[in-house]
Design a protein around this nucleic acid. Structure first.
Lengths: 161, 161
DNA sequence: ACTGGATTGATCGAAGTCGAACAATTGGAT
DNA sequence: ATCCAATTGTTCGACTTCGATCAATCCAGT
């Protein structure tokens, strides 16, 4: 059986290029490749909903934790708070979320989903689950659990890094 | 045991924000998070060598497959060929690689590493292996093999997606 | 009550990536 | 030989993210 670790060019190339053998055997390299493929796969097939598809993680957090400040949201998704501003601007303009004033702190905004935003998240989440199903095709329930558990341990290690 | 799947904010936050439960259990979400963490972890600790650290994968390919065209290199690392131009410009200016004329096709460039470029790749590859060791801390050899195998299957699935 | 440092959101410039162009070149069909 | 589509590298404008900075606001210490 051929290793799935080939370079991205292999998708439609004749003579695959090679990496240093030590990199080719690396989990980190696979992480990068899998993430790129998953990202492209998702964005390619999903209606954009005005920027929502790209930031489903963010929007999901907003729905599950309505009323958070922008700074907490930025931290939660690993963006700078300055990067979040135009993203929220766009989603607000598209009627997906609202910025509301916080009483007790006039610096802060509370970010709330609109009804439309909640519907969009539900739709996109369903499509993310479809991608998940495709991603895990052929893996048994036990193997899926193994993979999730091992990835959790890797993530814990990287956090401490 | 607590799940490693928390949002990135948890690194130094008090009250973790939550995702939709279905997303929280997802391999794709973990892929994204792990990749972000690994990327930051690597770039944070490694000397830049004039842009080489960021493009270790590319540089590794160039060393293992010297003389390739820019278009093949771009495909191999998943970049547009237009995006590769300033990257190669910079590395060429820093003496890490060369663009040589190809006899038989005057449109094409052959990209070759310099001696210095090869030394840089060796150095960076060693540091990538260190990150790999940290990433896999606590995993047995069998578990590491399991993880690599499962990720290969996931990647194969994503390719077909 | 006041002051100084911290926090929040916003703004700006720099850098990276993409996609649509473009010029030069190649190769195939006639 | 000649034309026309495809290929290669490049340039350009749009968009995204970051880091530094700013104004407004909050809060702790006095």
């Amino acid at each position: 059986m051929q290793s799935a670790v080939q370079l991205l060019a292999d998708i439609d190339a004749e003579a695959p290029l090679e990496l240093q053998p030590s990199l080719e055997r690396s989990v980190n390299f696979r992480l990068r490749m899998a993430q790129i493929l998953a990202y492209k796969s998702f964005e390619a097939k999903v209606p954009d909903h005005g920027g929502a598809a790209r930031y489903l993680g963010l929007l999901s957090i907003i729905c599950q934790n309505p009323g958070q400040s922008q700074i907490k949201l930025a931290e939660a998704v690993g963006l700078q708070r300055s990067s979040l501003v135009p993203i929220l601007d766009k989603m607000e303009a598209n009627g997906i979320l609202e910025r509301r004033a916080v009483d007790g702190d006039r610096r802060s905004n509370a970010v709330w989903p609109t009804d439309h935003g909640q519907a969009v998240v539900a739709d996109l989440t369903a499509q993310a689950l479809e991608l998940e199903t495709r991603t895990l095709d052929g893996l048994s329930a036990e193997e899926t659990d193994q993979l999730l558990g091992l990835m959790d341990r890797v993530i814990t290690n990287l956090r401490r890094g």
